[in-house]
């Protein structure tokens, strides 16, 4: 496997604010990567740094083996669909779809037309007059039809309804399967996309808190539910990610459990509930939030 993106010890400061704090990760070629985290965690900043749109304070970024900053050879292979992209005042969608192919050597016009029909996007209405969802659809269509070897989607579907989002997921999977490429997708709708992702990178307060295969991340936590005493006895001194309780009942999220441990829990009358990727991230980011507050 080869890396399309290699980031080491990357830091980005805005004045006294550290947006990205000594981050290192790599993105393997032809994977769908999820860049997840809360608003303001640093997802957009990372994408801007990877596409040379912003400048690192320190650290090293390699995209296709080179620095992306002002590097036409690297950037010519990328497509960055930004959240709430604005367009020139009088632009209509057809202006976008007429000009986009000039920038993307792999652009597939037929596919673009198919997507336009899928999303029922009016081509001849001023973009300013379009709904939020239709505006997002423009970006999604450009991102898919560009077939850029490295495509970034930054919260690509604000305002898209559930049906349109499903179309996006289906088209992305279908096209990715036929023409593998590297996709980096940032979103806060984690449950919806978690099955599409091969790898997840979770950012919180400018740091990477999870960087693993989506499958492993998903299995990396379990919630144990039962009478408080029984739960505490079972868990012992285990590290606790999250704790909830009503009356005598406790619901505690911990790391992965082995087969025998699961059997032991069942024997003790405890229930084991799965933890979705979204829950896991919420719990993990909460933890670091409190840690942060304590250290401050």
């Amino acid at each position: 496997m080869s890396a399309v993106v290699e980031v080491s010890n990357l830091t980005k400061r805005f004045g006294h604010f550290t947006a990205i704090d000594d981050v290192s990760f790599r993105v393997e070629e032809n994977t769908i990567h999820g860049l997840l985290g809360r608003n303001g965690a640093g997802k957009t900043t990372i994408m801007q740094l990877l596409t040379g749109q912003d400048f690192a304070t320190s650290g090293d970024i390699r995209v296709f083996g080179q620095s992306p900053v002002e590097n036409a050879a690297v950037l010519g292979n990328t497509c960055f669909i930004k959240e709430s992209q604005r367009y020139p005042d009088n632009f209509k969608p057809f202006h976008v779809f007429r000009s986009a192919p000039w920038f993307f050597p792999n652009w597939d016009e037929e596919y673009a037309q198919l997507l336009i029909a899928d999303f029922r996007l009016p081509l001849n209405r001023r973009i300013k007059k379009l709904s939020r969802g239709q505006l997002s659809a423009i970006g999604v269509i450009v991102g898919l039809a560009s077939r850029a070897p490295l495509t970034f989607f930054d919260e690509p579907y604000l305002g898209l309804d559930a049906v349109a989002r499903q179309i996006f997921y289906d088209r992305l999977l279908e096209d990715y399967a036929e023409r593998p490429r590297t996709v980096i997708l940032s979103t806060h709708l984690i449950d919806e996309v978690s099955n599409l992702l091969e790898h997840v990178l979770v950012i919180d307060e400018g740091r990477v808190i999870i960087d693993e295969a989506a499958e492993d991340a998903r299995g990396s936590a379990t919630t144990v539910v039962g009478p408080r005493g029984a739960v505490d006895a079972f868990l012992g001194r285990r590290e606790i990610l999250h704790r909830d309780g009503i009356g005598g009942l406790a619901s505690v999220t911990v790391g992965p459990l082995t087969g025998p441990e699961r059997a032991a829990a069942a024997a003790a009358g405890l229930e084991l509930a799965p933890v979705s990727l979204q829950q896991l991230i919420i719990r993990k980011t909460n933890v670091s939030q409190t840690e942060f507050e304590q250290s401050a």
């Binding site: 994977t31 769908i32 999977l173 399967a177 099955n195 091969e198 989506a214």
Partner: peptide, 11 residues
């Protein structure tokens, strides 16, 4: 399978 179950082809 990936398209039908809406999951990553690698999975």
């Amino acid at each position: 399978f990936a398209a039908f179950y809406r999951i990553n082809p690698a999975t």
